[in-house]
Design a protein around this nucleic acid. Structure first.
Lengths: 197, 197
DNA sequence: ATGATGATCTTTACACTGTACAGATATCCT
DNA sequence: AGGATATCTGTACAGTGTAAAGATCATCAT
């Protein structure tokens, strides 16, 4: 698309895609705005007509990264064909697995997404919760409907599950816990949620 | 100690302390090695005789930060005078609270400690686990002895609890969860661990 | 079609960064 | 004492983010 024009056509999304890919490869603190611009065949300060500064670009890339995580989770869910109780349980575990796998397979994107680069818009008061929350809510509702999750444990369980999975992912990523800790966590979670496999 | 010598006496620890304090104030990615050196009355490249590069200094500061966190946890534990079941439960909650509080009160130190700056030495195969692990183990043992934590839930509970607390701390810190989520998490944890308050 | 308007990109420039290298200086050991 | 060694300085270089002013294009009212 877009002619090989002098004005490059669509710099903004090219910058975003380029930044995201570079972060993915070398990490956020090693991406250079100048080098990125040079690679796109554009002057050093061209980016400033689309983003106020480098942090804003990285922040946008960060939100793209957290979206990629949600995409991967939904993809992992879509694969599961089982229905009923088996399906609900499989979906629950797949959600945790894909979250941890994303963190370990794309450590730089994961750190970008949750490492303070993403400027909080006004998420506290935002009427719509993060995508990860909605995905998780559906999975937990599925567990309740299947009779696997005791109703008395349903409240606040999004917080518990999301926190635990996110925590184990980052602790493994930063070398504080061994990789096997993830499986241990999933077992513990399932056990404590009252799930009987 | 050490004279006000031309050779500054003890640059290494001065650099470490300075770096730690600067990270605390402005965040890791905004500390300048040159500015730090200038502030210590020392030439720009003086630091290179004590640390191979800037990352190494930040890494050392990161390990100091994670030590500070452990200090704060032990301090929070020491304050609690209650004994028996009440004490065990109070200690358990204080551990979580101090962890989350540290993250929210010292966000830059927390991110430095768990944000990929700390080079993993060989922690996977290391014979001794992180300090946070030991502290947590004692608290959980206390819960079991007090009859508050069911023995069937004891296995892997360090992983579950540490992950959940760490996760909720970072998710709140990055604006993905509201601050009240921490209390909800503690309640959920206590409930699911079988604790009856 | 023309000319103005606004968006997009370039040029130039500045202050600052991390760090390599060679030399100066102080301390310590024999 | 003197020489070895650790510690720090001076200088220099390539690279960085970004501010300011000018060039170039697309679009649209006339």
């Amino acid at each position: 698309m877009s002619k090989p024009a002098y004005h490059h056509g669509d710099l903004e999304s090219a910058l975003l895609a380029g930044a995201l890919e570079r972060v993915r490869q070398v990490g956020a603190e090693k991406v250079s705005l100048r080098a990125l611009a040079a690679d796109l065949g554009v002057s050093p300060s061209a980016a400033y007509h689309h983003f106020p500064d480098k942090d804003a670009l990285l922040s946008a890339a960060g939100f793209a990264a957290i979206d990629k995580l949600a995409d991967q989770q939904e993809l992992a869910l879509a694969i599961i064909s089982a229905t009923g109780a088996d399906g609900a349980l499989a979906r629950f575990r797949a959600l945790g697995r894909s979250y941890v796998d994303f963190a370990l397979n794309e450590p730089h994107l994961f750190r970008l997404a949750f490492g303070g680069h993403c400027v909080i818009p006004d998420a506290l008061e935002s009427d719509e919760p993060p995508r990860a929350w909605d995905i998780l809510t559906s999975a937990l509702d599925g567990l309740v409907e299947a009779g696997l999750l005791k109703a008395e444990f349903r409240e606040n369980s999004e917080i518990l599950v999301w926190s635990a999975v996110h925590g184990v992912a980052t602790l493994i990523l930063e070398g504080q816990l061994p990789a096997e800790a993830a499986d241990g966590l999933f077992d513990s979670l399932a056990q404590m949620l009252g799930v009987r496999p």
